[in-house]
Amino acid sequence: MTVNEDDRQFVAEYVLGTLPAALRLMMRSRIAEEPEVAAVARLWEQRLAPLHELAVSIAPPDDLWADLAGSLSPPPVAPPEPSAAPADGTPAGDTAFAIPASVDADEAAPTLAAPLEGMPGSARRWRWVALGLGVALVGLAGGFAYREWGRTGGPYYLASLQEARAASVLVRIDARDGGLLVRPLLDPAPEGKTYQLWLVPDGQPPRSLGVFNSAFATRSDAVRRLGVKGAAKAMLQVTVEPEGGSDTVPSGEVLYSGRLMPE
């Protein structure tokens, strides 16, 4: 599978650093999961990294080494030379990257997706949405809800540190072929229940895009029929439904909702 031009562009900008938070999050997970995308990232890292030779060096805080050494257990073996492969060590803690929910939680109303800057006029085919709505988490007032979303088969973990009430679902659709990618950052659905994603085209009844309890990817005729124009006006909603999902209409309360934003 080759990487299309749009994705190559995103990967280059990921490495350069210009992508906004939500796009970074998505590219990061794709680099971790898709070898073809990772290869493009590696290429750009190779290309741009030499710029570091012109960067100014600054002594880091004195206590940082002691702090790091304390996090390493068992004591690692010192590598012979920095130009040789660094020796392997096993840090005690997982390396977690904090990525904020791209929307602020709001108690009363569904919040719209964070405004990813668009490219007006040009038919950007990939569309994104980040959805968020308040979820009460007892006992975390003023603190942070810590979510970890482990991926199978890789050493990477992703964490989203959010305000206690926030949770989110990342949805990416391809209006050309109906491709659908869903990455929930949610607590698991209650026992015997499941999350269900609904597409609500402008002025039409909701259509199910599938049930989920974890990340999934699929292709949907409903999304494809929507087209680029329809996608700009459609809403997405997430409800909690009985196991197996609801056949026709959402029966549960809408937990999350948001609009599709052109990338």
Binding site: Q46, L68, S71, P76, S83, A84, G89, G93, P155
Partner: peptide, 19 residues
């Protein structure tokens, strides 16, 4: 921490400092 954790999987085609 990440450097030490992923050192084994370090890409062979990238110079160590660049990585």
């Amino acid at each position: 921490l990440r450097i030490w954790k992923t050192a084994k999987a370090r890409p062979a085609d990238l110079e160590p400092l660049a990585w």
